[in-house]
């Protein structure tokens, strides 16, 4: 992307109204080019729009949930809100009949059944088996096995990757890793992915950073791991 193109997009970029790939291109250009003096100021003005929305009072339960998660400590802080987040998001999806991953009809039914049985707030962990993965800097994930052959991975605290890389999930049995699928680049440090596999086949689960498209075997050290 050249300077003229960036200038043309500066207002749009400042408001985060660019699709992700264009936004990333502008960011990358601005990181190395000092000719666009207005960029930071326009971003600051756009950021100030956050304060133009009227204040509103949330329920007292919000503060309680927040402080519970904070006081529970870093590892639990990953798990507790993620559980609510996962079910919360699934609930959003169901009414729209939109599920953002390529899922077979049977999986869609399983997810919907899961949400319906768990409606009503704080619930036990969904699914038959659950594995917690942890890593450095409070990165973590919860891996749920919903049904035979279907695993949901809910990860947070990850470093966002650029498009040339991907997170990849592995199951390890007797020291041999098998790929369970790709988890994407984790924009915002989070990912919610559905992959095919069975937790019970493995002793450990791990997540590594691999080149986009994945690898046949892990080429880097795990960023997340846990005992299955």
């Amino acid at each position: 992307m050249n300077c003229d193109e960036v200038e043309d997009l500066l207002g749009t970029y400042a408001l985060d109204a660019l699709p992700g790939d264009l936004s990333a291109d502008v960011s990358a250009h601005l990181a190395t080019c000092s000719k666009h003096e207005e960029a930071a100021e326009l971003r600051a003005v756009a950021g100030a729009l956050a304060f133009a929305a009227p204040e509103a009072q949330p329920s007292p339960a919000l503060k309680m949930r927040l402080m519970d998660a904070v006081r529970a400590g870093p590892a639990a802080a990953v798990e507790t809100p993620r559980r609510i987040g996962l079910l919360g998001r699934l609930k959003h999806l169901v009414p729209q009949r939109v599920i953002p991953y390529a899922l077979a009809g049977a999986l869609a039914v399983a997810l919907i059944a899961l949400v319906i049985t768990n409606v009503g707030g704080d619930s036990d962990r969904p699914g038959r088996a659950t594995v917690s993965l942890s890593g450095e800097n409070s990165a973590g994930a919860v891996v749920y096995e919903l049904e035979d052959g279907i695993i949901v991975v809910d990860a947070a605290g990850l470093k966002p990757l650029d498009p040339s890389q991907t997170y990849q999930l592995w199951g390890i049995a007797s020291g041999n890793p098998s790929s369970l699928g790709l988890l994407g680049t984790a924009p915002n440090g989070e990912t919610l992915s559905v992959v095919r596999g069975q937790i019970t086949d493995f002793e450990f689960l791990a997540v590594t950073i691999e080149p986009a498209g994945g690898s046949i075997a892990p080429t880097t050290d795990p960023v997340l791991e846990g005992k299955a």
């Binding site: 949330p58 870093p74 809100p81 609510i84 987040g85």
Partner: peptide, 14 residues
């Protein structure tokens, strides 16, 4: 509320 909670916990974790 979910969004606020997730945002603040992201700040907390990172």
């Amino acid at each position: 509320e979910d969004v606020v909670q997730e945002a603040l916990l992201t700040i907390w974790r990172q």
